[in-house]
């Protein structure tokens, strides 16, 4: 079974999958019948939700679940770091999405996401190892 943190990563990734698909469907329909040209403005958010929110976040959650573990009791390493990464990543994605209304926040969102990935890599670094070591 998955650790709680992976459940949060993976379920959040599924929510972003649906949100990204919704925006993509709205844009594709606009290409077809031009019902609301303004909808094409959501393209960057569509890409953000599906590349970072869905694919990157899913990979992070699954890696935390299946990478080789340490001995008990801290079998998956410093979970606090990875929780912080999860929070930062999702905050970053949502802040990047706000660029639709406040373009200046885009950079803040990207900084949060970058921080999330650095913290995640630091937290998982030593679990990239042979099994049983």
């Amino acid at each position: 079974m998955m650790p709680r943190l992976s459940v949060w990563f993976v379920r959040a990734s599924m929510i972003y999958l649906l949100a990204g698909f919704t925006l993509g469907a709205l844009m594709l329909a606009q290409d077809g019948i031009s019902y609301a040209p303004a909808v094409m403005a959501v393209l960057p958010v569509h890409m953000e939700f599906l590349l970072v929110g869905w694919l990157v976040q899913l990979a992070m959650g699954v890696a935390f679940w299946i990478f080789p573990r340490f001995g008990l009791p801290h079998s998956r390493g410093n979970e606090t770091l990875i929780w912080a990464s999860c929070l930062l990543l999702n905050a970053g994605i949502l802040v990047v999405a706000l660029e639709l209304w406040i373009p200046a926040v885009f950079l803040i969102g990207r900084i949060l996401e970058t921080g999330a990935v650095i913290i995640y890599a630091a937290g998982l670094w030593r679990r990239v190892k042979p099994h049983g070591t």
């Binding site: 993509g24 469907a25 709205l26 594709l28 329909a29 077809g32």
Partner: peptide, 9 residues
């Protein structure tokens, strides 16, 4: 394209 959008969603 509209039908495709709905199906993919």
């Amino acid at each position: 394209l509209v039908v495709s959008a709905a199906i993919q969603f």
